[in-house]
């Protein structure tokens, strides 16, 4: 409003002492007295929605599936293992985007393990805890949640400006390989094995 008032003030100043015709009068406005000056106004209106957009991985409805293969010679040696496939920003990384315009965004992770960790489908094989999955971000303002069997710790991307978040990053995943689980395939596309993480973004 302050700036709009300024616009009006400028127009008045420019036309001070002159027979100015503007668009509040009949258009076309005319002036037949030197120095000649005519103003016409045009209004703009932008209707801007309240929205929240969130992307983890591929820009589609597909769910990315990160596959970590642990070599026998290195099982449990604490050397992190990168995924060999499944990412959309490299084999072990995902593109992340969060855009919203009504206040602080919070990203909360949950998983399909029921708090137990990632299994093979056979209870006797035991589980791999989610604390063995590490996530790092390429952008400090869009940090990844630290995953746990219970889900993980919510994070809040840094606001880009008042009320607005507009952040993109690449999150890179690795298997920390600090334990020696039973041989087997843990997690995968069968959600009941506990290998699916769901990130939920919320905004006031």
């Amino acid at each position: 409003m302050k700036t709009a008032a300024c616009l009006l003030a400028i127009a008045v100043a420019a036309g001070a002492g002159l027979p100015v015709h503007d668009a509040r009068a009949e258009q076309p406005g005319t002036d037949a007295t030197a120095p000649f000056l005519v103003n016409a106004r045009l209004n703009f209106r932008v209707t801007y929605p309240r929205f929240l957009r969130f992307r983890v991985g591929a820009a589609s409805t597909a769910v990315n599936h990160l596959v970590f293969n642990v070599p026998a010679a290195g099982v449990g040696n604490s050397a992190p293992v990168s995924a060999t496939s499944g990412g959309d920003a490299g084999a072990s990384a995902l593109n992340i985007e969060v855009v919203g315009n009504n206040g602080q965004v919070t990203i909360t992770p949950t998983n399909s393990s029921g708090g137990l960790g990632i299994g093979t489908g056979n209870a006797a094989d035991g589980r791999i805890d989610y604390n063995q999955i590490q996530t790092t971000s390429s952008v400090p303002q869009l940090p990844p949640p630290v995953l746990s069997n219970a889900g993980g710790t919510p994070v809040q991307p840094t606001l880009s400006s008042a009320l607005v978040t507009q952040r993109t990053a690449v999150w890179t995943y690795s298997y920390l390989n600090q334990t020696i689980p039973s041989a087997g395939t843990y997690g995968g596309t069968t959600a009941s094995r506990g290998g699916r993480v769901t990130y939920t973004a919320t905004m006031p």
């Binding site: 709009a4 616009l7 400028i10 127009a11 420019a14 030197a34 120095p35 000649f36 000056l37 005519v38 103003n39 016409a40 106004r41 045009l42 209004n43 703009f44 209106r45 932008v46 209707t47 801007y48 929605p49 309240r50 929205f51 855009v99 919203g100 315009n101 009504n102 880009s160 008042a162 009320l163 607005v164 978040t165 507009q166």
Partner: peptide
């Protein structure tokens, strides 16, 4: 090119024709 808070934004342009 930029994200803005939600709302209905209004503004006005002023065109000026001049001749000495």
């Amino acid at each position: 090119t930029t994200v803005y808070p939600s709302g209905t934004y209004n503004g006005q342009l002023i065109y000026t024709l001049q001749m000495p």
